[in-house]
Amino acid sequence: MSHFQPELRQRAEELVALYPRSRSAMLPLLHLAQEQDGYLSEAGIEEVAGLTGTTSADVRGTASFYDMFHLEPVGKYVVGVCTNIACLLAGGEEFLEHASQTLGCAVGATSEDGLFTLEETECLADCDKAPCVQVNHRYVRTTTPESFDTLVGDLRKGVHDADIPSHGTLIRVKRNGGLRASHDEIREQRATSSAARAKRAEGNS
C-alpha cells in the first residue's frame, strides 16, 4: 500500500522515469513527500527509498544535507527571513526580531497554533527587495514591519491559500508531455546523423 496518495504516486513514478538512474530523482521525490505530509515523515522516507532503490537510512542521510527538507513537523507556513549581507545592510536582523515577535515564536521554532515556523535564511537572491522574506519559498516582498504584519494577518485568514500553497515547491512544476525518447533510440539516431555528417563533410572537402 502506497503512502503517497494515488495522484502523487503517479507523479513520483513519472519523475523517476525521467532520469537515466532512479536515484537521481531523490531531491524532487523528497520535495513531493514534503508536499503531502508537510515534512519528511518516516513513511514518506520509506516510499522514496522504494522509488529510488535505496534504503531509508540512505534517504535520510541525503535529506539531512539539504536545508529545505524538514525532518520534523513544521508549521503550515514556513517564514524565511534573510539576514545575509544585502539584507543585513537593510536591517534584516531587526526585521527577523520583529517577525519573531509578530509570529510569537523564536527563530527556528513553530508557533503554538502550528501555523508558522520562523527561519533565518541565507541569501534568497532577491537582494533588490531587501530585507527578503519568503513564505513556503514564495517571495512575499514585505520589506517593512507594517507590511509584514498585514501579510501575517492575511495568512491567518487564509487569503493567500491559492498563491502560497502549504509546502511543496513543485506543486505547479509538472512535465506535461514530450516524454523522453529512449536512450537506445537517441543513440541510434545520433550514430546515423554523425555518419551522415561525416559523409557531407567529406563531400565538401
Binding site: F69, A181, Q189, T192
Partner: peptide
C-alpha cells in the same frame, strides 16, 4: 524532443530542483 524542427537532432531536457 524527437527530431527538433524536423532535423535529425533529438534532445530531452529535465528540470531538476535543488533543495537548499
Amino acid at each position: 524532443g524527437s527530431k527538433i524542427f524536423d532535423s535529425d537532432f533529438s534532445l530531452d531536457i529535465v528540470v531538476h530542483p535543488g533543495a537548499g
